[in-house]
C-alpha cells in the first residue's frame, strides 16, 4: 500500500477511511470518468437505429469527426464552414469573456482582500446572494435589461444618448455581459483567496521604496496572485466555452454557440454519436488551450488547486 494511503487509513480508521475513499472513487470514476469514456465511445460509432446497434454496421469510424471538418459527404463545400466558424467563434468569445472578467474582478478581489471591516462581509454577500437565483432567471433578467425595449435602452434613449434603441442582443453585448456575470464569483474568489494571504507589509515595503501603485501590482501583487488568477481564468474559460443557457437566451439569432450545436445534435437530430464527437472536440481543445497558456505563463498544475 502506498504511504499516503496508509497514512490516510491510519488517520481515519478502516471503516470511515474506506467509506470516504469509496465515495470519492465513485464520484470520480462512476460519475465522471466512465460517462465521459462512454461519450468517447459514442463519438466513434455511426448513428444507427436501435435494432442495428451491435449489428454488423456498428463499427468504429472517424465519420463524426470528419463531419465537423469537412461537412456532409458530397456536400457543396469542401469544409464544414458553418460549424467550424461557430467552434472558432465560441473559443475566441470564451477567451474574451475570460479576459473581460479578469479585468473586472481583479480590482474587486484586491479590494475585498486588502480592506478590513464589516462592510467587506456585506459586499461579499451582495456578490453571493444573486447566485441564489437560478441561471435561467438571471439570463432572462439580463434580457429585460438589454432588450430592444428594455430598461437600458429606455434610459439611454430618454437621456438622449441614443436616438433609436441599440440592439444589445443582436450585437452580442447581452451575451458577453451574461456570460461574464454568470462566472464572476469563480473569478473573484480564487484571486481573493490568494491576495488575502499576501502580507500587507510587502505592499508597504514596495511603497516605501518609492513604487507607484501600478508598479506594486505588476511586481508584487500580481505575481503573488498568479495561482488564483490562473485558477479563476481556467474555470471561467472552461465554463464559458461550455455554457448553454446564456447563449440560448441572450445570444443573437445569428450567433450560435458551439454548445448549442452539440445540443441540437443530441436533442433535435437525435444524433448522439455526432453530438458526442463535437463535445469531445470542444473538451480536448479547451484542455489543450489551457495547458498551452499555463506553459506560456509558467503556471504549475498544483497552483490551479490553490
Amino acid at each position: 500500500m502506498p504511504r499516503f494511503l496508509k497514512e490516510f487509513f491510519d488517520r481515519n480508521g478502516l471503516g470511515i477511511g474506506s467509506l470516504m475513499l469509496g465515495l470519492v472513487l465513485f464520484w470520480t470514476i462512476g460519475l465522471i470518468i466512465l460517462p465521459q469514456l462512454s461519450m468517447l465511445d459514442f463519438s466513434f460509432r455511426p448513428n444507427l437505429p436501435p435494432p442495428e446497434i451491435g449489428g454488423p454496421k456498428d463499427v468504429y469510424t472517424m465519420e463524426n469527426y470528419r463531419y465537423l471538418v469537412f461537412g456532409p459527404e458530397g456536400g457543396s463545400q469542401s469544409y464544414n464552414a458553418v460549424d467550424l466558424k461557430v467552434f472558432y467563434r465560441t473559443l475566441i468569445a470564451a477567451i474574451f469573456v475570460t479576459i473581460f472578467n479578469l479585468i473586472l474582478c481583479y480590482p474587486i478581489a484586491y479590494y475585498l482582500a486588502q480592506t478590513k471591516g464589516n462592510h467587506i462581509r456585506i459586499f461579499a454577500l451582495m456578490l453571493i446572494i444573486p447566485y441564489w437565483i437560478n441561471e435561467i432567471l438571471r439570463a432572462f433578467a439580463l434580457r429585460i435589461i438589454f432588450g430592444e425595449t428594455g430598461v437600458l435602452n429606455n434610459l439611454l434613449v430618454a437621456a438622449g444618448i441614443f436616438d433609436t434603441p441599440f440592439d444589445f442582443v443582436r450585437n452580442d453585448i447581452a451575451l458577453y455581459a451574461g456570460l461574464g456575470y454568470a462566472y464572476i464569483l469563480l473569478m473573484i474568489f480564487p484571486i481573493y483567496n490568494v491576495i488575502e494571504s499576501l502580507d500587507r507589509n510587502q505592499i508597504e515595503a514596495a511603497r516605501d521604496m518609492g513604487a507607484s501603485w501600478p508598479m506594486i501590482h505588476r511586481r508584487v501583487v500580481i505575481p503573488y496572485a498568479k495561482p488564483g488568477i490562473s485558477s479563476g481564468c481556467t474555470m471561467v474559460f472552461m465554463l464559458s466555452a461550455g455554457a448553454l443557457a446564456a447563449p440560448q437566451i441572450l445570444g443573437g439569432p445569428s450567433s450560435l454557440w458551439f454548445t448549442q450545436l452539440i445540443y441540437q445534435q443530441f436533442n433535435d437530430n437525435s444524433d448522439w454519436p455526432q453530438g458526442a464527437a463535437y463535445a469531445v472536440v470542444l473538451l480536448v481543445t479547451c484542455i489543450l488551450l489551457v495547458l498551452a497558456l499555463m506553459r506560456v505563463f509558467k503556471v504549475n498544475m498544483g497552483d490551479i488547486g490553490k
Binding site: 502580507d199 507589509n201 508597504e204 515595503a205 514596495a206 508584487v220 503573488y224
Partner: peptide, 8 residues
C-alpha cells in the same frame, strides 16, 4: 519591517 517583508 519586523517580519522583513522581503518579496518571496
Amino acid at each position: 519591517f519586523q517580519n522583513l517583508a522581503l518579496f518571496p
